[in-house]
Nucleic acid binder design. Structure first.
Lengths: 224, 224
DNA sequence: AAAAATTGTGAGCAATTTGTGAAATAACTG
DNA sequence: CAGTTATTTCACAAATTGCTCACAATTTTT
């Protein structure tokens, strides 16, 4: 039962979406503006967000920008007019789909299902960045067709960052998720592992970027 | 008596399939969604899964992807429309067959039998890695045309790993599946058997790879 | 430019995990 | 039943990995 967060200032529209989403068996939650949405995401995790572009205060774009700093949750945008689609693509914010108002609830539901199916598939067995491939089931990393096996912690660290591409993860967060919640060691241990992970990645070391004062992130950029 | 796992959110459909499968003498189990299916597979082994594509929550694709991380069990997919067949083939998930709704129970049974015959052959016949051949029916292993017979546990261990090529199996998992669920012995027993299995495999000892901190896997890599 | 804060790095030691041989126990075979 | 083969446990050696710390390098702030 996937969970949905519906973000719209128009209460009628929220209700409409919710009614149909309930029928499809989604677990719904509604908020009336962008900052509430960001807050809700910090509290809970959702499988998908339906986000209206036109809202007073933080509009949909701003909200999404904020959300994308901490999450890669799938997003479907509601736009007032088709023309706004250009903006959506322009911002590279990772919008999974958009629906123009007025829309039929059925269409929206169909798109929600489609996005969930797509993104569900994306959590595949392999994660790829250019010629670097991570395969969790065999716990191997392949670089330029050569496989190498990393030490457990390094592999888990890489995997965690790969699963959160472009999102900065603090040392604390990494310790929590990779090392486990009851780990009380030195935070700088992460640095040491990042270091040797970089060594192991060779030319792909630049995948791992230091975000000064915050933590690390993995980001793949085309290079030749 | 082959065992079947039926995965579908629609209870009527599950019952329908089960009724006919029982008649054919299959040992059936039913679950209503993908995550339950994954859980069931961790508990028990089945000979085949009948998996509906369209399900709330984890859909069939997602579920299969997840299953494929730990198992190569044969799968028959139930699709709502013929068009979805493209997706099935496209994703290289190793779907053994598919049946489009609405289907006649007889057709489904025929396909189940066919898949079991096919894959059954694959399983009972031989598994090959280069010049190493494992023959479950005679419980022998041939290396470079010389057959050798392994002790029971070693053979089962090798077979289990061979059936999960490239997938890391933890000691716990191996104990569960090879030794049985009610085995309470020392986990390190696995190591001992791995050791003597390696000795028996001679030059093919490198098929069995230690995945530090996790377990063992069997992986065949071309070398000449 | 200096100070402060943060990150990179190398090295040594600690801890964990695995390999291995041997011995004890169990199961099987003729 | 005796002898053989399998299985399991255990202890210790070997290997690998993880952790901390000190100091260097870098970035930011004052």
């Amino acid at each position: 039962m996937p969970s949905l967060l519906i973000v719209d200032d128009d209460q009628h529209l929220r209700r409409l979406v919710r009614t149909y989403a309930d029928l499809e068996g989604f677990q719904c939650e509604e908020v009336s503006d962008g900052s509430l949405a960001v807050a809700a995401l910090e509290e809970k995790t959702f499988d998908l967000i339906v986000l209206d572009v036109m809202m007073p205060g933080m509009d949909g774009f701003e909200t999404l920008k904020k959300i994308r700093q901490t999450s890669q949750i799938p997003v479907i945008m509601l736009t007032a007019r088709d023309e706004e689609y250009d903006k959506l693509t322009g911002f590279h914010l990772g919008v999974d789909d958009y629906v123009s108002k007025p829309f039929s609830p059925k269409e929206l539901m169909a798109r929600i299902s489609a996005v969930l199916r797509r993104t569900g598939l994306k959590q595949t067995d392999v994660i790829t960045f250019g010629k670097l491939t991570i395969t969790p089931s065999s716990r191997t990393v392949a670089i330029d067709d050569k496989t190498l096996s990393l030490p457990p912690k390094e592999f888990d660290l890489l995997l965690k960052m790969a699963q959160n591409e472009r999102i900065v993860l603090s040392r604390e967060k990494l310790l929590q998720t990779v090392w486990g919640y009851q780990y009380y060691g030195d935070v700088r241990t992460v640095d040491t592992h990042i270091k040797s992970l970089r060594e192991h990645l060779g030319p792909y070391r630049k995948l791992i970027q230091t975000v000064w004062g915050v933590g690390y992130k993995l980001e793949y950029t085309e290079e030749s």
